[in-house]
Amino acid sequence: MLSNLGFNKIQLQTPLKQLSGGEATRVAMAEMFIKPTNVLVLDEPTNFIDVFTIEALEVFLKNYPGTVIFTSHDDKFVNRVAQQIYKIDNQTLHHIL
């Protein structure tokens, strides 16, 4: 799984605490991909990751059988993944899509 997310042999041997923010995010994603859950809550999931990993995340989320709730400022990611969009403005929830 980790090699599919762009990790090389050296990185696979590196302790988690020594990985960069993006690498640690990819490790967390790998865990998410293989651990069965009914609901995923993601806060800015595209922060700190490269385009390759964003694309892998998009494919995973589009095929995820459960519920995904996420926040993102990445409009392209939101438009490619979200089936419903809500916006909070002035303490009021608005259904956008």
Score class of each variant (00 low, 15 high):
L42N: 09
Q13E: 14
P45N: 08
M32A: 09
I34R: 05
Q18T: 13
T25K: 13
K35H: 12
V39Y: 15
E31T: 14
E44M: 10
R26H: 07
L5Q: 03
I34Q: 06
L42Q: 07
L16V: 15
E31R: 15
E31A: 10
M29I: 13
R26L: 10
L5T: 02
K9E: 14
T37A: 05
L16K: 11
R26T: 12
T53V: 10
R26G: 01
P36R: 00
N4K: 13
M32E: 06
P36F: 03
T53F: 01
T53H: 04
S3Y: 03
E44W: 10
N4T: 04
K9I: 04
I49M: 03
F52V: 04
I34S: 13
N4R: 10
D43A: 13
T25N: 07
I34D: 05
L16S: 09
P45Q: 01
R26M: 08
F33G: 04
I49V: 14
R26N: 01
L12H: 10
T53R: 07
I49E: 03
S3D: 00
Q18Y: 14
D50N: 15
G21I: 06
F48L: 04
L2A: 08
F7H: 06
V27I: 12
E31G: 14
I10L: 07
Q18I: 08
I10R: 08
P36V: 03
D43T: 12
L2S: 08
L16E: 11
D50F: 11
Q11L: 12
P45Y: 08
T53G: 02
F48W: 09
Q18C: 13
T53E: 01
L12F: 05
L19Q: 13
P45W: 12
T25R: 11
N47I: 08
A30S: 05
T46Q: 07
A28M: 12
G6A: 05
N38S: 13
K9T: 11
N4E: 13
N38F: 02
L19K: 11
M1E: 11
L42A: 09
Q11I: 02
L40I: 12
K35G: 00
T53M: 02
V41L: 15
